[in-house]
Design a protein around this nucleic acid. Structure first.
Length: 639
RNA sequence: GCCCACAUAGCUCAGAGGUAGAGCACCCCCUUGGUAAGGGGGAGGUCGAAGGUUCGAUUCCUUCUGUGGGCACCA
């Protein structure tokens, strides 16, 4: 007897072992049809799995959220089967499910073309229609290795060989395709359905190592049904409209050009945005006990040798020879900050010393890594270095986390991923120091109410770090803020202070940025608000648009009055219809359009139309402007 | 840096081995219109760069540069 407990608590007994398929059929024909997987004592397995003893079971259908990931993995297998059918000079490697889809890496001398993608996708649909049974077997290691070698699947043989002794080696077959896989898989290819689409081709290194050969990666997306698939495709389309590169052009914020790869030309409107953010940051730093400094761009190589950058960072530095000396553009601000700390004698009374710098850095990023404003070769960090005593690390870290959280909040970023990167394998400093530094950072994050996820072994060689990660429009993660504890650089550059007892001590340096780089942060900001900036950041806050030319003078007066209140206002006195003007300024995402006709000119009013609204409100000029001016106050000045 | 794709007017894009076309934007004229495109006209391109094939290349080939998507990298 086998007694199976269902999710509703009821128990079904069977005379002997049953499979998931049989169980579903016994419960009802509807469930039998909808059944995709079996959950056996909490673990999702194939429907064909034989249940031999009492267990808690559940039939997994498409309604189960966990199923998407499994469908995507099945879809990857169908992709691999299609590719193996269509091309005989190809080896399969791995094909996991990922967020929103899946990929499969193939080894093939001739890369796939976009036309291949179309062909493969058609074949995938055929395979689903064939509804091939998917069967699992467990093989003995030697047999699996022999089999894959005989098939010419050397990557698979390598993967099998790497599976630890004692672990089962699952082999799945569908049609003429046999693949090594942990599973679970659907009972047959037909269960997958047709809600999938191949999306892109890419190169990817075998085992993720650039010293290895490059494989051909095929990406796809896969959903429960067509409706979900369409929703996904629409979501991507919408996200692309928020791309900061596109909005940067459309809203005349900035441009980049061929002669300056990885560099940015900021236009007046984009630079206004930058200046507003910078001014805000400066106020926040000033009220938080920072002092601002500025250090040189171009410094002699000997300096970078001493700081260690010449050894560790040389290949990323822009170097220039002049008068038989070698100079390099600074890739980081920290060594410069230490020079300022070192001038004059510092005492414990000077600590913590918070040196802020809006420092322009240049790094020779690989050409393939460049990406709009997100990854550039010239960028400005909202950098600061906190020189403190060891027992001040925790307090300073908490203080920083609080400041960062408050600032991100002001920009509307509530959803921040925070990673705690702990000690890497190769590192400087004793374990005792690492224990202390890691504990301090952990405590600080906790005290500041931050939830961190561990990013193991990814700390800097000189210390652990907190990484504050924001997402772009299409879901890519970008590290923005960071806090790093550093015991090494003060040592290398010989920074010290006089302690209370008169002894000379090394300060600890906390490297920290909040925005990270202005370029990256502004890119995220642009995408996050889709170019509809809050009033305090909008490059142009209002446009006074005349309806008839008789109102032009009054419209000009409106602009002048607005400017007196510090509002960034533009005049649109062009000979065009108000419909046209409203459309144009709406598309430019101007927060407020003040339409001005004869009536307004006579009565001293304006007709205010806010972005996103389809109606307008007539108000006395002074009241309308006062209202806008109040709203245009930066968040820190409103509190 | 590696793989694939792409590069035509300011923007979005069409095009073909015989030296280029649309819409919008721009300039001029008419229009003074009350909340998402009023009408007419004009100007605008070394078809990313350099080689090659060809009687002839923007189109085919090669290389380079840049961009896009990935991979690797991201102190």
């Amino acid at each position: 007897m086998v007694a199976l407990t269902l999710p509703d608590g009821s128990v079904r007994s069977f005379p002997g072992a049953v499979t998931g398929t049989e169980l579903a059929a016994a419960i009802g024909p509807g469930l039998a049809k909808a059944a995709l997987f079996l959950k056996l004592d909490g673990q999702v397995v194939d429907l064909a799995t034989r249940i031999e003893r009492d267990a808690k079971v559940a039939i997994v259908t498409a309604r189960d959220d966990a199923v998407l990931e499994l469908l995507r993995h099945d879809c990857a297998h169908v992709l691999a089967e299609a590719v193996k059918e269509l091309y005989n000079d190809v080896q399969v490697t791995i094909g996991p499910s990922i967020e929103d889809g899946f990929y499969y890496d193939f080894a093939r001398r001739t890369p796939f073309t976009p036309e291949d993608l179309v062909r493969i996708e058609i074949r995938m649909h055929e395979i689903v229609d064939r509804n091939e049974p998917i069967r699992r077997e467990e093989w003995e290691r030697g047999r699996a290795i022999e089999f894959f070698k005989a098939q010419g699947e050397h990557y698979k043989a390598e993967i099998v060989a790497a599976i630890p002794e004692g672990e089962p080696i699952g082999v799945y077959s569908q049609g003429r395709f046999t693949d090594l896989c942990r599973g679970p898989h659907l009972a047959s290819t037909g269960r997958l359905g047709h809600a999938f689409k191949l999306t892109k081709l890419a190169g990817a290194y075998w085992r993720g190592d650039s010293r290895n050969e490059m494989l051909q990666r095929v990406y796809g997306t896969c959903w429960r049904d067509d409706k979900e698939l369409q929703a996904y495709l629409t979501r991507i389309e919408e996200a692309e409209k928020r791309d900061h590169r596109r909005l940067g052009r459309e809203l005349e914020l900035f441009h980049q050009q061929e002669e300056a790869p990885g560099m940015v030309f900021w236009h007046p409107r984009g630079w206004t945005l930058w200046r507003m953010v910078e001014a805000y940051m400066r106020r926040r730093l000033e009220t938080d006990g920072y002092v601002e400094v500025k250090t040189p761009q171009l410094v002699d190589r000997a300096f970078w040798q001493q700081s260690g950058h010449w050894e560790h960072f040389r290949d990323k530095m822009f170097v220039s020879e002049i008068e038989e000396r070698t100079f390099a553009l600074k890739p980081m601000n920290c060594p410069g900050a230490v020079q300022i700390f070192k001038r004059g004698v510092k005492s414990y009374r000077d600590l913590p010393l918070r040196l802020a710098e809006f420092g322009a850095c240049h790094r020779y990023e690989p050409s393939g890594a460049l990406h709009g404003l997100m990854r550039v070769r010239g960028f400005v960090q909202d950098d600061a270095h906190l020189f403190c005593a060891e027992d001040q690390i925790t307090a300073e870290s908490i203080r920083f986390c609080d400041l960062l959280t408050s600032i991100y909040g002001d920009f509307g970023f509530a959803d921040v991923t925070i990673k705690f990167a702990d000690r890497p394998a190769v590192r400087a400093g004793s374990d005792a120091i690492w224990d202390k530094a890691e504990q301090a950072l952990k405590d600080a994050a906790k005290a500041a109410g931050l939830n961190t996820i561990l990013n193991p072994g990814e700390g800097a060689f000189y210390g652990p770090k907190l990484e504050f990660v924001l997402r772009d429009a299409i879901g890519r993660d970008w590290q923005c803020g960071t806090l790093q504890v550093d015991f090494v650089l003060p040592e290398r550059l010989d920074a010290e202070y006089t302690a209370e007892d008169g002894s000379r001590r090394r300060p600890v340096m906390l490297h920290r940025v909040i925005l990270g780089s202005f370029e990256r942060f502004l890119a995220i900001l642009i995408e996050d608000c889709a170019g509809k900036f809050p009033l305090w950041l909008a490059p142009t806050q209002l446009v006074a648009a005349s309806i008839v030319s008789d109102a032009n003078d009054y419209a000009a007066k409106v602009v002048a009055e607005a400017a007196k209140l510090g509002l960034r206002a533009e005049l649109d006195a062009r000979n065009d219809k108000i419909n046209f003007k409203v459309r144009e300024h709406s598309l430019r995402k101007i927060p407020a359009i003040l339409a001005i006709g004869k009536r307004e000119a006579e009565q001293g009013t304006v007709s205010v139309r806010r972005l996103g609204s389809e109606t307008s409100q007539v108000k006395p000029l002074a009241a309308a402007l006062a209202e806008l001016a109040a709203e245009a106050l930066p968040p820190d000045q409103r509190r």
